[in-house]
Design a protein around this nucleic acid. Structure first.
Lengths: 215, 215
DNA sequence: TTACATACGTTCGTCTGTGTATGTATGTTT
DNA sequence: AAACATACATACACAGACGAACGTATGTAA
């Protein structure tokens, strides 16, 4: 519900100058309550998404976990997908804030990508991707947010100046898929790295560092 | 209901020799019906799993798609997870039957793995993996089947004689993760390959063919 | 302090899905 | 052809989840 304070839009006011400076410096406590419960709900949503998958994210479960009533939930969000969308937005914002300036070379770029992908929170992104592929009606509500995620960890990065070199670009694209494979392995292993993860990572790093040879 | 019925069969029969050779060569038609509807249900299950994901695989949907009644379904399977398990077993059998003798070199081994992973049906495996990670109670019913899948496309292959060489083994493990990343990309793209898939595949093949160099 | 807006709680009807009878038809055996 | 088993259908009872409607409490402005 937009806070377009009542009446303002329709009738011509005599002293409209007066409220041109609403400058409401108060309005804090309420806003804080709102921010608090919204944060609680959205965090509970993401946690649930990571721990038990998309289908388990039900309004009831989220509310229980966040410690708020279903009424409170419905006061802040019109529907469950709405909550999902906002929760993913928050997650995206958090992950992006941790982002560092663009990496200088291929190795560091891969490291940066791995930093994102290896986070436990990345499972939430996986779940969102799958959910969208499985139910196209979600596209309208959470599509835009998910698209932003793809930018965080995506071939779009592959156009950065760092990858001007064509073969570096191909190498990065490949590395990204490898890392996604590892993330998938973690996701299907309750977040724990698989046994061969280190082997794969060092192999990948070696390739990134030394390029390709004929043997 | 056990047929411990009225006396008749309890009495010693005069020509009991007659039924000592039951040798029922008939029993065809019924068996065919059974096989037919079971196949229909299991195929519908897999199709649904691929198209709309784990959560969408509901008994009602499966029955509608297979064109059988819910009663028929419950006649053949005690529960929905039971059907899922049998459907996955069938899928596994199909994929394994297409398997060829072990590849001779690293490149062919990667190709063979990619043949499995790039199949549209692989999305069903992905869904099963995620579902099991999200709901541990599924472990008892579909856990064993899913474990067999892991054998089809897994590091277990990495112990084949073909990969006696240690660096080949590491390379294969990495390649497998890369391919899984690509499969994930297809799954989240409604089965269509992503734009950079070919780039990644040729890059991967080049590495497998030529090894690593210092540049 | 009155008047209102916002935040939250509770109850309700509905829908979808599941498994359990119980009925009926079609094979199968003797 | 009678007796039985198997295959399938319909009806029912129940559980979980959703959104709407309505109630209450607590901040906020006049």
């Amino acid at each position: 519900m937009r806070s377009s304070s009542s009446g303002t839009e329709a009738m011509p006011r005599r002293q409209s100058i007066v409220d041109t400076a609403p400058a409401r410096p108060a309005r804090r406590a309420q806003a804080d309550r709102t921010a608090g419960t919204r944060a609680a709900l959205e965090r509970a949503t993401i946690d649930l998404l990571i721990e038990r998958g998309w289908a388990a994210v039900t309004a009831i479960e989220v509310c229980n976990r966040a410690g708020v009533s279903r009424g409170a939930f419905h006061h802040h969000y019109t529907s469950l997908p709405q909550l999902l969308a906002d929760a993913l937005k928050r997650l995206y914002a958090e992950m992006r804030d941790e982002d560092r300036p663009p990496a200088a070379d291929l190795g560091r770029l891969i490291d940066a990508t791995w930093r994102h992908i290896s986070s436990p929170r990345f499972k939430a992104v996986l779940e969102a991707w799958l959910a969208m592929a499985n139910d196209s009606s979600l596209d309208s509500e959470i599509g835009p947010v998910v698209a932003e995620f793809s930018n965080l960890v995506s071939p779009a990065n592959a156009t950065t100046p760092t990858l001007a070199d064509e073969s570096d670009r191909a190498l990065y694209l490949m590395a990204r898929e490898t890392l996604l494979g590892l993330a998938l392995g973690r996701a299907t292993n309750r977040g724990r790295p698989l046994g061969h993860e280190q082997t794969v990572l060092t192999q990948l790093r070696r390739i990134a560092d030394h390029g390709i040879q004929a043997r």
